[in-house]
Amino acid sequence: MLSDEEIKNWPEAGTATTAPVIRADHLDLTFQTNDGPVHALKDVSLDIAKGSFVSFIGPSGCGKTTFLRCIAALEHPTGGSLTVNGMTPDEARRARAYGYVFQAAGLYPWRTIGRNIALPLEIMGYSRAEQAERVARVLELVELSGFEKKFPWQLSGGMQQRASIARALAFDADILLMDEPFGALDEIVRDRLNEELLKLWDKTEKTIGFVTHSIPEAVYLSTHIVVMSPRPGRITDVIESPLPKERPLDIRDTPEFIEIAHRVREGLRAGYEE
């Protein structure tokens, strides 16, 4: 277990020359429930640098999803400060700072894949021509070209989730927030989507916040792994990955990978043992 002081002084994610895109400082979030207050987040401090891939891992109730939702201004912290691109989360949302990918694809069954991806563009008032151009571009990015006219039920679960990622990318937000996006998929599909997500991250240079339950997924994808523990939800460890940016799937058998995975597992266990 780390002291608060150590966590606060943790080396900033990414290179020191860029200002953090997301900065949380002593963030608290307490839900008032009938059974008394629940401390979903307690004293969470974290900087996320531009272009980094940050995974949040921890058992249920550790606040990893809540933290992501705070960044997206879907929840509002009860204490501390949180800035996204130097703005409040609400302002950042209005400035279209992020795209959000949920655990379920959540495509509208009455819209084709193309029109689903165009949904945020319609709401944000892009012209027809620009919508078409952007839809084609992001479909290619997630390798779904040719499926534009299909309805969601005609696609497999993995393809639906890729479409939902395309939808989040369509309006060019710099930040991509993903809440267990592959949690409902089988392991083989998940492996492939992980590989594709890394390529996509490399091509688009987005800053990605990624919530997961899976240790190998977190280690494989991330530049920084944030280990969290529950009651109250807090950060117990932040691991900077020494793995190279180029990561074939078999990197998971290397000693470095296993070493990091071990450290994540230790961090999770420490959280449990209190």
Partner: peptide
């Protein structure tokens, strides 16, 4: 989740009605 998705787009109430609520209610 579908309502949250609309919130992430800062969608105005009218958009939520025409693009999500009404089609869902058919």
């Amino acid at each position: 989740m579908q309502m949250d998705l609309m919130r992430t787009y800062s969608a105005p109430t009218a958009s939520v009605l025409t693009k999500l609520r009404l089609p869902s209610s058919i």
